[in-house]
Design a protein around this nucleic acid. Structure first.
Lengths: 229, 229
DNA sequence: CGCGGGTTTGAATCATGTCAAGTTAAGTGG
DNA sequence: CCACTTAACTTGACATGATTCAAACCCGCG
């Protein structure tokens, strides 16, 4: 079965299902890859499917009619993508990196939710997690300076990409999954401000950057000291 | 039974319960009033109870150690107050106005959740609603100007206080449930900026203000035109 | 009548945005 | 293998919206 080696089978929502249920769902599941920049779910589109993120990063954005944009969520594996109980979404999902997804038709997920309280519980927990994250982010957006925003962002990425980092290790290295423009949309800044703040962190030797995308943090606590507390 | 006339019995989470369950829960419920400014749930406190908001407004805040504060949610009747599945909260709940609450001990709510999938569904739906609101707010915090933030805020209050407004009626009037300082904490601005923007809206005859708290909006569409779209 | 919290207003400062050049790096095709 | 193109990023000079600091105001209340 394709699920056996799947990350979502363990940490993700599929972990809620027993083997029989999983077999049913797997029959209608379809795995697919999408290149960076692909729109996964449109603004005013009807939602026809849900998906698990298997690898890569998906960004959820909202856009004002004059073009101003804000990223309101980032989904990493094994997050579940989709908004149950709502036909229309007012947000946009786009592949921030190359991603691979495991998609399910809307109807079979909703049937499965009705059948499995355990699955619904999982989804509820993910919603609570996303709510906690969104509220943390509101503090960052509303009250932190540009420099603090960048530090907070780097730490968030370090934590969600390198699971080990933060607890035991003092240092971290990772690839940024977002372009400067995306980072700006995430933090409510401009590209230029993002760039300047990164330059400053580099000048102060808090981070090093290779190839514009690879970040090295020799001492996480020095970065933490800049995130605002 | 005290529940009969209760707002939460109808629109709120208690609507999920059948009469028997309600009777059980009602036995451990305790109604109480709290004056404006009362702290309802502390930052690092253990969470000992949940509650329904029966009237008034509760603000959920987060604070950085240097005192910067951000309101991350407002709860109106008949919202449910509390964060299931988590012993510690990293946010603060405070009465923004005089409020009345219907409180339940933590244990009986959690027992009830386990017994009633319908109740859990309700709570899940409220979490999704709060998530949608938080994400809308992130756009406001990250991408809107001070003037647009104030207009957005006034419209949000108008909608949640005066249920009828917005759809059929062209005008609205309501009391602000928050002080200028609270509005500033909600919008990621300073008191002074809030005050200046309100003054400007008044000067432009988009709104009128009586007694510093009562707002009159003669033409909602003119206010909507200022909220940023 | 005076006191105090909440609010408004003004002037100066500062952080971030805007506009405009550059620079780098990664293709792409000759 | 080397111009040429292009997208992403960096840097600089300047403009501006929001904050900061300071003072005055308003109004209910003792």
């Amino acid at each position: 079965m394709l699920c056996a080696s799947c990350e979502a089978r363990h940490g993700g929502v599929c972990a809620a299902l027993d083997p029989d249920q999983l077999a049913v769902l797997a029959r209608s599941a379809r795995k697919y890859e999408a290149g960076s920049g692909t729109e996964l779910m449109g603004d005013a589109e009807r939602i026809e499917s849900y998906a698990n993120v298997l690898s890569g990063v998906v960004k959820l954005t909202k856009t004002l009619s004059d073009g101003r944009q804000q990223i309101v969520g980032l989904q990493f594996a094994p997050d579940f993508l989709g908004r149950p109980f709502k036909a229309e979404s007012d947000l946009n999902a786009e592949a921030a990196t190359d991603v691979s997804l495991c998609a399910f038709p809307r109807a079979s997920v909703e049937r499965m939710i009705r059948a499995s309280p355990e699955l619904e519980r999982r989804l509820y927990l993910q919603a609570l997690k996303e709510l906690d994250e969104a509220r943390d982010w509101m503090v960052t957006l509303g009250r932190k300076t540009a420099g603090e925003k960048i530090a907070s962002f780097l730490l968030m990425i370090a934590r969600s990409i390198e699971p080990a980092a933060g607890t035991d290790r003092m240092s971290a290295r990772f690839d940024l999954p977002l372009t400067r423009a995306d980072i700006a949309d995430f933090l409510g800044l401009t590209i230029e401000t993002v760039s300047r703040q990164l330059t400053r962190l580099r000048a102060d030797k808090v981070i090093a950057i290779e190839n514009n995308r690879h970040v090295i943090v020799p001492d996480l606590s020095r970065l933490e000291a800049r995130q605002g507390r």
